[in-house]
Amino acid sequence: MKFSLAIFLFLLCADTAAFSMGDAINIAGRQRMLSQRITQAYILRGIQPGTERHQQIFERCMREFAHNLDQLADFEEAAPIQSDLQAVQREWKTFEAIAHQPVSKLTATELFRRSNSLLPAAHAYVMRLQGLADHSSAELVNVSGRQRMLSQRIAKNYVAHFWEVAGDEGGKRLYEDLAEFQLMLEFLLQSPLNTPEITRNLLKTQGYLSYASRGFDGEMQISGERQIHVITGTTDMLLRNMDVITGQYAELLNSVQLATR
């Protein structure tokens, strides 16, 4: 038991030592995505209450958001912008309290609204981290990380519109986010810092986006319940691919910073 604990503590310390600015921007960027994914899962629990997967995703993402906040609070390089992280922590406290309430259309409407307050606070912190990093590759980590968020905000707005807990806002923002995702995908594809592997992954993401757009445009003649499955499944593929790409950009930033020390 003592040996196992020693190994665990060693690995924990090694992980803390390896935490860098690229990692911080990546993790802080995940908070934007998680705010939207949690809300999506919460609404899906109301639409499809018998589906265990929605509950599992909800609980996992809630734990990750809290864990990420703890990690970011311990990141010494970001000490000058601690007040920005505290703003995220305050928004999270309110959001978390609503998210732990039983699912209803009333609470889903309130969580939808609070997700649109938590998101900009999380985004402001990412932007401050990007400024601290002061390198062009930091922007790529930020933008690709924002694509993860957009994939989940697209799905969140779709299910919120479907369950009628977003008013007119859900449908309107959905198409705005689709347009932004495409625009930023083209921006990333044009980066001279891209490796061949990053470019391949970006092109793969472009294919997923094209498929998802068919569902939103009503080209797939399927039932509403099936449409939810197709759209959330496709946006999850967008998320997974952009998560890999964001990690690749974070590694680029880390390597640049190591080379300049």
Results as ranks from 00 to 15, higher is better:
Lys2Asp: 10
Phe3Asn: 05
Phe3Arg: 06
Leu5Tyr: 15
Ala6Asn: 09
Ala6Phe: 12
Leu9Tyr: 11
Phe10Gln: 08
Phe10Tyr: 13
Leu11Cys: 03
Leu12Lys: 10
Cys13Trp: 14
Thr16Ser: 12
Ala17Met: 10
Ala18Met: 11
Gly22Ser: 05
Gly22Pro: 00
Ala24Tyr: 07
Asn26Thr: 02
Ala28Gly: 06
Gly29Leu: 03
Arg32Asn: 07
Met33His: 05
Met33Glu: 02
Ser35Pro: 00
Ser35Asp: 01
Ser35Arg: 03
Gln36Asn: 12
Gln36Trp: 08
Ala41Ser: 15
Tyr42Leu: 04
Ile43Met: 04
Arg45Trp: 01
Pro49Trp: 09
Gly50Ala: 12
Thr51Leu: 07
His54Ile: 01
Ile57Lys: 06
Phe58Ala: 05
Arg60Asp: 12
Cys61Ala: 14
Cys61Thr: 08
Met62Arg: 11
Met62Tyr: 09
Glu64Ser: 10
Glu64Trp: 09
Ala66Pro: 01
Leu72His: 09
Ala73Pro: 00
Phe75Ile: 00
Glu76Arg: 13
Glu77Trp: 05
Ala79Tyr: 11
Pro80Gln: 04
Pro80Trp: 13
Leu85Val: 01
Gln86Thr: 02
Val88Phe: 10
Val88Arg: 02
Trp92Pro: 03
Phe95Cys: 02
Ile98Pro: 04
Ser104Leu: 10
Ala108Asp: 05
Glu110Tyr: 12
Leu111Phe: 06
Leu119Tyr: 14
Leu119Phe: 15
Pro120Met: 12
Ala122Cys: 08
His123Cys: 02
His123Arg: 09
His123Lys: 14
Tyr125Val: 01
Gly131Leu: 12
Leu132Lys: 13
Asp134Phe: 13
Ala138Thr: 01
Ala138Phe: 12
Glu139Asp: 07
Val141Asn: 05
Val141Lys: 02
Ser144Asp: 06
Gly145Glu: 03
Gln147Glu: 07
Arg148His: 09
Leu150Pro: 06
Leu150Cys: 08
Ser151His: 11
Ser151Met: 05
Asn157Arg: 05
Tyr158Met: 05
Val159Asp: 02
His161Thr: 14
Phe162Cys: 00
Phe162Val: 05
Trp163Ser: 10
Val165Pro: 07
Ala166Met: 11
Gly170Ile: 02
Gly171Asp: 03
Arg173Asp: 08
Asp177Lys: 01
Leu178Cys: 12
Ala179Pro: 00
Glu180Val: 12
Glu180Ser: 13
Glu180Trp: 14
Gln182Met: 04
Glu186Pro: 00
Glu186Met: 08
Leu189Ser: 03
Pro192His: 14
Pro192Ala: 15
Leu193Ser: 13
Thr195Gln: 13
Ile198Cys: 04
Thr205Asp: 13
Tyr211Pro: 00
Asp217Trp: 14
Gly218Phe: 07
Arg226Glu: 15
Gln227Glu: 11
Ile228Arg: 10
Val230Ala: 11
Gly233Leu: 08
Thr234Leu: 15
Met237Trp: 12
Arg240Asn: 14
Met242Trp: 09
Val244Asn: 12
Ile245Phe: 11
Gln248Phe: 15
Ala250Gly: 06
Val256Phe: 13
Val256Pro: 10
Gln257Cys: 10
Arg261Cys: 01
